[in-house]
Simulated scan of single mutants.
Amino acid sequence: MGYFYGILIRELDITSLIKTLPVIPVERENLHMTIVYIGDQRPSQEIDDKIGISVGSIPCFNVKLGQLILLPNALKPRVLAVEVIGNERLSRLRNTIMNILRDSSISINDKHSGEFKPHISIAYIKSKKLNPEDILETAREMGVEEELRDKSLLINSVSLILAKEDNYRELTRHELQCRF
């Protein structure tokens, strides 16, 4: 079990694209981009409200999807993901949230807190016996990367999410400042 601030991705439906790969697709309702992983301790309502106020003053923005990647690395991958490009605004959003958490003495258990590589996990690698590069190449040949690459996503909210095994539940949602 763990809590994190993230962005739920509702615009992608890629299960049909990757169902023939030797992977376990991430359920559509669980597609997300982690902004900061907190750990087992849920932030108080007061801290979450502070984050909501700060996030509410940040303008909405778009990011683009890039190439398929293997995580945590190509040698021992556990996840097939798509990278997120144009992450300067994502980094600022992340820093805003992290600063509030740190200023509130919340212990952040994000092992990646030093480096931020935004991505959307789309599938879990099923077998260690398969060559992960083959999975990546097959996904590219099938057009998965082509379907995702350069797709634009509107970042208009950040959610506090509870992750319990393969189940992700949105606890609170904080809207960015969007003017359309």
Rank of each mutant, 00 (worst) to 15 (best):
4 F>L: 14
7 I>H: 02
12 L>H: 13
12 L>D: 14
24 I>A: 14
27 E>P: 10
30 N>K: 04
31 L>W: 02
31 L>K: 02
33 M>P: 03
33 M>I: 12
33 M>Y: 04
34 T>D: 11
36 V>P: 07
38 I>P: 07
39 G>Q: 08
41 Q>L: 13
42 R>C: 06
44 S>M: 10
49 D>E: 11
53 I>Y: 12
56 G>L: 04
58 I>S: 01
64 K>I: 00
66 G>S: 03
71 L>S: 06
77 P>D: 04
78 R>F: 09
81 A>V: 03
82 V>T: 15
83 E>M: 07
91 S>C: 03
96 T>G: 03
96 T>P: 01
115 E>C: 00
116 F>G: 08
120 I>N: 01
122 I>R: 01
132 P>R: 12
132 P>E: 12
133 E>M: 15
136 L>S: 09
138 T>C: 06
141 E>C: 07
143 G>R: 07
143 G>W: 04
145 E>H: 10
146 E>I: 11
149 R>D: 11
150 D>S: 13
153 L>F: 08
153 L>P: 09
153 L>M: 13
157 S>C: 03
158 V>G: 02
158 V>L: 08
164 K>Y: 06
168 Y>C: 10
170 E>Y: 01
171 L>R: 13
173 R>D: 03
174 H>R: 09
176 L>P: 02
177 Q>H: 09
177 Q>V: 02
180 F>R: 14
